[in-house]
Structures are given as C-alpha cells and as structure tokens.
C-alpha cells in the first residue's frame, strides 16, 4: 500500500503562478462605479482595464488577476479581452504614447515620412519605447482626422497636419 503512495513524483517543470497585484483603493472605487452601469459585473471588463491603465500606464499580469477577482471571472477571461483591444497595453509603455495614424488618408498625405522621422528622432522602431522612457511610438489605425493628415495622438491629445518640425517640438 505505501508503495502505491510513494510511486509518485512531481513533474519538474510544474509552474509557479504569478502574484496578484491588488487594486489600489481608487482603482477599486472607479471600477465599482463602472460596474453599476451594467446588469452583469463582467460587462465592466473593458472599463476596469482602462481604469487600471489610466493609473498604471499599462496592465500587468498581476493587475489582470486583480481585475478578474473584482469582476468574479477568471484571469483568462480578462486577458482574452485585454489582448483583443489595441488600446489596452499589456506591456509597459513610456510616459507618453505617440500613436501615428497609418491609415489610408494619412498614407496619401505622407505619414510614412513622418513615421521615419519620428523613428530617427526617438531612436526607436515603431512599437518601441525611447531609451529615456519618455515616449512609446506606435502606429494606429485611422484617427478620424483624415482631412488634416498626417495626424497623431500625443498622449490624450490629437495633433493634426503634423510636420517633422512640429513633431520635434512635441517631443522636446
């Protein structure tokens, strides 16, 4: 009998799960407020992710777990949503995200030149963060400023008809 019990050993690569990073009081409050807008808690998933991102800049694995807990769903459920939407950052970003529109009207208006200028200026490739941690440069789909292209989002702010000089001023 005891032989039966000891015949067993644990697999070596068994995984240790990551830690939950608890929500701050303010995050919790804001998420709970958003939850009141919907009949089911889970419907506030996107808001919850945005709340955390607003405060943390991005959404870490630990925060995904914390959001799952408050919404009463699994981290998988939250992560499936978080990774679907392009404005949820699951990796750290710089202080300011610069999102350059790469869609058709801005393409016609020469966004490619602006993008390569930005890359040179910040010494990054699209998708990367500058060495000083100040800027993350991203391409973004049509910003709805097609009559004023090329356009970009500088953090929360829309900037239109952007030239190289103007870009340099923005990132000074």
């Amino acid at each position: 009998m005891s032989e039966l019990i000891h015949a067993v050993s644990l697999e070596e690569n068994a995984h240790v799960p990551g830690e939950l990073d608890p929500l701050t009081e303010q995050e919790r409050e804001e998420i709970e407020h958003e939850m009141t807008h919907y009949p089911f808690k889970q419907a506030a998933t996107i808001e919850a992710l945005k709340v955390v991102q607003k405060h943390q800049g991005w959404v870490s694995d630990g925060k995904v777990k914390a959001i799952a807990q408050i919404l009463d769903v699994s981290p998988e459920e939250v992560d499936g949503v978080a990774t679907f939407y392009n404005k949820i950052y699951r990796r750290p970003v710089g202080e300011t995200v610069i999102a350059v529109c790469d869609s058709v009207s801005c393409w016609v208006m020469g966004y490619e030149g602006l993008m390569s200028h930005a890359c040179e200026k910040l010494k990054v490739q699209p998708g990367q963060t500058s060495a000083d941690g100040r800027f993350t440069l991203l391409p973004t789909p049509c910003l709805g400023a097609c009559d004023k292209g090329p356009a970009l989002m500088f953090g929360e702010e829309l900037v239109t008809n952007v030239t190289g000089e103007e870009f340099d001023k923005l990132v000074k």
Binding site: H15, D61, S74, P75, E76, D79
Partner: peptide, 21 residues
C-alpha cells in the same frame, strides 16, 4: 475557466493566462 481565446486576427491564441495545469 482557465482557457480562453487571446489576441485576435491571425494571431488568435488559445491558452491560459500563464503557464500552468
């Protein structure tokens, strides 16, 4: 609970939030 579709388009990924049984 612990399996979901992640990401999207041609990158859609079926897995867990992190490695684990």
């Amino acid at each position: 609970k612990d399996l979901a579709a992640m990401a999207s388009r041609e990158n859609t990924y079926f897995g867990r939030h992190e490695d684990g049984c």
